[in-house]
Design a protein around this nucleic acid. Sequence first.
DNA 1: CTTGACCTTTACGTAAAGGTCAAGTATTAT
DNA 2: ATAATACTTGACCTTTACGTAAAGGTCAAG
Lengths: 132, 132
Amino acid sequence: MTEKTYSISELSEEFNITPRTLRFYEDQKLIAPSRNGQTRIYSKKDRARLAWILRGKRVGFTISDMGKLLDLYYLEGGKVKQRELGLQNCQARIETLERQKKDIDETLKELRKIIEMFKNWKPYPDQDNAKI
Amino acid sequence: MTEKTYSISELSEEFNITPRTLRFYEDQKLIAPSRNGQTRIYSKKDRARLAWILRGKRVGFTISDMGKLLDLYYLEGGKVKQRELGLQNCQARIETLERQKKDIDETLKELRKIIEMFKNWKPYPDQDNAKI
DNA sequence: CTTGACCTTTACGTAAAGGTCAAGTATTAT
DNA sequence: ATAATACTTGACCTTTACGTAAAGGTCAAG
């Protein structure tokens, strides 16, 4: 049974990125698709890595951050040190993400306040201006 | 009663950014502190804008995004068009933020899975590998 | 009057994340 | 055979968000 594979344009269309981006990620050692001659062939595993990278990006990590994290994750060697490093890394990331969630919630609150202000706007100011 | 003001270094220390960053934001028209001679004097309002900018940044907006948003917010003119623009803008941002929250939640889930994998790592693979 | 701390502007430098050609190869369709 | 596609590598270009160095103003303390 031969696993499903993807061409560079298939994958880039699916994830709405350009081929250039995929080549760039390869350049940065984030993905290492196999080759048929010189043509890249992406496996399911490659696809999964890509999904991770892009999600990481969306929530504010750099691609080199993601590279390191993926490396730790896919590490074959189970040297205790490496595993601990991986754990610490993940935990640090979790903290960052949780702070970000709080930030987002606060920002959302304020945005909603602003929307109310826009909606309730009146041609003449009432006592409720000069708030910020 | 004279309102509290801040020097560039006070503000940069408080928010843990460099004075350069504050000057840069001014250059980009995000903040416009008043001056004593040529020395910048930041008001409470300036401080509030800064807080907004930084929070926006943390959750993935560019500083020019934040500039535009702040402009809409602080707009004195209540021209209907402008207000609608502001509303649309805010709503778009809210959607972005909510998508980001979902992303973060998913990422958190996966990070926690990975942590479990790191914790439960065993020298010989069991049937549970090759997952991603 | 000099030292130090803090401020200023101007201007070039840089890292990250790709975009944008250019020029060539390989496969497929007519 | 030739054109159209899809792929390749390389090289330089761009934007964002500041860093950093140069060169100097200002003001209080000793």
